[in-house]
Every structure is written in structure tokens, then in C-alpha cells.
């Protein structure tokens, strides 16, 4: 186990390093002088040169990289000139919104995926199965931002059932006292039911938009592996013990089908980072995604670079967590690695 962990850690470090080096180099090769942007359009040449030095841009690239990395892990993520504050603080402010949205999306997608796959394998070949499969095709073939716009048109503009792209809360609602930063959880903790309801309705459309692809991916994979698994001899054994068709699918097939789903879960989480950027933009959701799109438009490279760093770390973390989870969940792996 320890050798396995060691190897994993080593490759994780390499991944992070590789990702950040590439990101760093690309960011520096982009046109546009950050020093000029920071100093302002009408700054004098001396002022720009001064700024250049202040930002450390006249150091060699490798030393810039090392300084950046050292600063990054100390929590100094650079200064965002477009908003005039440290990048780190911007992220601290935006992360809870993204976490809340992502958690809601993943929960919806997972619940939907499991329920869909259960229904599909119970009524294989029937109309319900066909409906689940159709939904999966639609989900995989639809761009999230397009789906988001469609949902807004239907549920906000036409039906007026749900709020529009106004962020996490209505303008008339005050944010609950911050504990976790997740408005729904904080409202629950504070017992502010009206706020909880408002935060929840604001979550629905963005979470569905973000979760639908994940659902589509998950349900397709789960369905396929469950239809394989129902042919396993131990399923027949379970039936011969007196378990019903539904019981067998829930208790004997599903646990086996969820094992590969763990791997997919890791992929999905990493993928989620990119999708949030689009979904947040559509819904005006004040999360990391929106922070980054705004930064790109402003050529605020410190923010974008921090985002790339976080993405690299998160992707690697997801992979490690998936491996560990897999080891815990599958008794066969558990033995092999110990």
C-alpha cells in the first residue's frame, strides 16, 4: 500500500508541475504586457518599466516561475489589478458559490443517474428505458450554456416559475450569516426559511444546467454496466433465494455497478471545473467561473494563472481520491494493494 501511495504521490507532483509549467509559459507568451495594463494605458514609459520591475517581469522566466510557485503555496497568489485586490481573496470570496453550485449539480446528477439506471434495467426495452436512453443522448449532445439559455427562456421568461440570471439570491433577500459560505446551508443553520427557499430556487436552473451532462454520462455508463451485471450467475443465485426482480437490481446489481462509477465520478469532477465557467456566466452566478471569465476579458492574468494552478491541483486530487475510494469500495482491490 505504501509503495502504491508513494508512486501515486510522485506522479501527482509531476502532473501538477507539468501543468503549471505549461500554464506559466503560455501565459507569458500571450500578447499584451501586463505591466502596461497595470500601470494604465496612458502611463509613461518609465512608469511601465517601473511596474515591470515591481512585477518581477525582468527576471528570467525560470526564476519567475520558482518565485510564483513559492508564493502560490504560501497563499500569495498575486494582485488582481482589475479589481484592485489580492487574487487569493477573490478566490476565497468566489469559491463557496461554486462549491454550492457544483455540489447541487453533482447531487442532482448522481441521484438522477442512479434512479434512471435502476428504472432502465428494471424495464429493459420498455418505454421507460427508452425515455432514459433518450435523455442521456440529449444530455450528451447539448452544450451546457445552450441548455442554460433554454431553461431560462422556458422557466423564467415564459412560465416565470423560477428566478432569472440574477445570481444566488434575489436582490431583496439578504445573505444569511456566513458559516460555511453555502447560502442554503447557512440559511438552514440560521433557521432563515425564507432565505433557504430563495437560495434553493436560485440554485435549481444552474444546477440542472451543470448536472445534466454529468447525469447523461453517468446514466449511460451505469445502465450499460447494470445490463451486463444482471447476467452474472450471482444475480440468478439471489433470485433463487427469493429476492424479487427489483430487489436484485437495487441490492445486488447496483453496488457492483457503482464501482466503475467512482472512476467516472473523478473524471466528472475534474470536467466540472470547465463547465462551471460556462454555466456561471449564463446565470450570473458569482463563483470562480465568473471570476475567471471576467478576468480573461480584462486580461487579468494573475487570476487566470491562479485558476489554472487550482485546476491542476484539483484534477490530481480527484484522481488520488478516486484511487483511494476505489480501494475502499472494492474488496478485491483492497486485498491486492495491501
Amino acid at each position: 500500500m505504501s509503495r502504491f501511495l508513494l508512486r501515486r504521490t510522485f506522479s501527482a507532483v509531476l502532473t501538477v508541475l507539468g501543468g503549471t509549467v505549461v500554464a506559466f509559459v503560455v501565459m507569458r507568451l500571450l500578447p499584451g504586457d501586463p505591466a502596461r495594463l497595470v500601470a494604465g494605458e496612458f502611463a509613461s514609459a518609465e512608469a511601465v518599466a517601473e511596474q515591470h520591475r515591481a512585477l518581477g517581469l525582468d527576471e528570467p522566466l525560470w526564476s519567475q516561475y520558482l518565485i510564483y510557485m513559492a508564493d502560490f503555496f504560501r497563499g500569495d497568489w498575486g494582485f488582481s489589478y482589475s479589481l484592485g485586490e489580492p487574487v487569493f481573496e477573490q478566490f476565497v470570496r468566489s469559491v463557496p458559490a461554486t462549491v454550492e453550485l457544483a455540489a447541487a449539480a453533482v447531487t442532482l446528477a448522481f441521484a438522477g443517474g442512479v434512479i434512471g439506471a435502476l428504472i432502465s434495467s428494471y424495464s429493459r426495452g420498455g418505454p421507460l428505458d427508452a425515455a432514459v436512453r433518450a435523455s442521456s443522448y440529449i444530455g450528451l449532445g447539448t452544450a451546457p450554456f445552450w441548455l442554460g439559455l433554454l431553461l431560462l427562456i422556458v422557466f423564467f421568461e415564459r412560465l416565470q416559475w423560477l428566478p432569472g440570471p440574477e445570481g444566488r439570491l434575489s436582490s431583496s433577500t439578504a445573505a444569511p450569516p456566513p458559516v460555511t459560505g453555502l447560502h442554503t446551508v447557512d440559511a438552514l443553520l440560521a433557521g432563515e426559511w425564507a432565505t433557504l427557499g430563495d437560495a434553493a430556487v436560485h440554485l435549481i436552473l444552474p444546477a440542472v444546467t451543470l448536472g445534466f451532462v454529468i447525469y447523461a454520462f453517468l446514466v449511460r455508463m451505469l445502465r450499460a454496466s447494470m445490463l451486463e451485471l444482471v447476467r452474472e450467475p450471482y444475480i440468478l443465485v439471489a433470485r433463487s433465494k427469493g429476492r424479487g426482480r427489483w430487489g436484485v437490481i437495487v441490492r445486488d446489481v447496483l453496488p457492483n455497478a457503482l464501482l466503475p462509477a467512482i472512476t467516472v465520478g473523478g473524471l466528472v469532477l475534474a470536467e466540472l471545473l470547465t463547465s462551471t465557467v460556462l454555466a456561471e456566466t449564463v446565470f450570473g452566478w458569482p463563483g470562480v467561473g465568473k471570476l475567471v471569465t471576467d478576468a480573461i476579458l480584462q486580461q487579468d492574468f494573475a487570476v487566470v494563472q491562479a485558476f489554472i494552478m487550482i485546476s491542476a491541483c484539483l484534477t490530481v486530487a480527484c484522481n488520488i481520491v478516486v484511487d483511494l475510494l476505489y480501494g475502499i469500495a472494492d474488496p478485491r482491490v483492497r486485498v491486492r494493494s495491501s
Binding site: P233, Y234, L236, V237, A238, S240, D252, N256, P331
Partner: peptide, 16 residues
């Protein structure tokens, strides 16, 4: 009740 041919596949691998 039944005892099947292949004991290796007759038990659910992820359950005790």
C-alpha cells in the same frame, strides 16, 4: 433451492 455449477461466480463479489 439450487446449488449452481460455478461457485466462483455464484457469490456477489462486493458483499461479505
Amino acid at each position: 433451492s439450487i446449488v449452481f455449477q460455478d461457485p466462483l461466480t455464484a457469490l456477489n463479489p462486493v458483499r461479505r
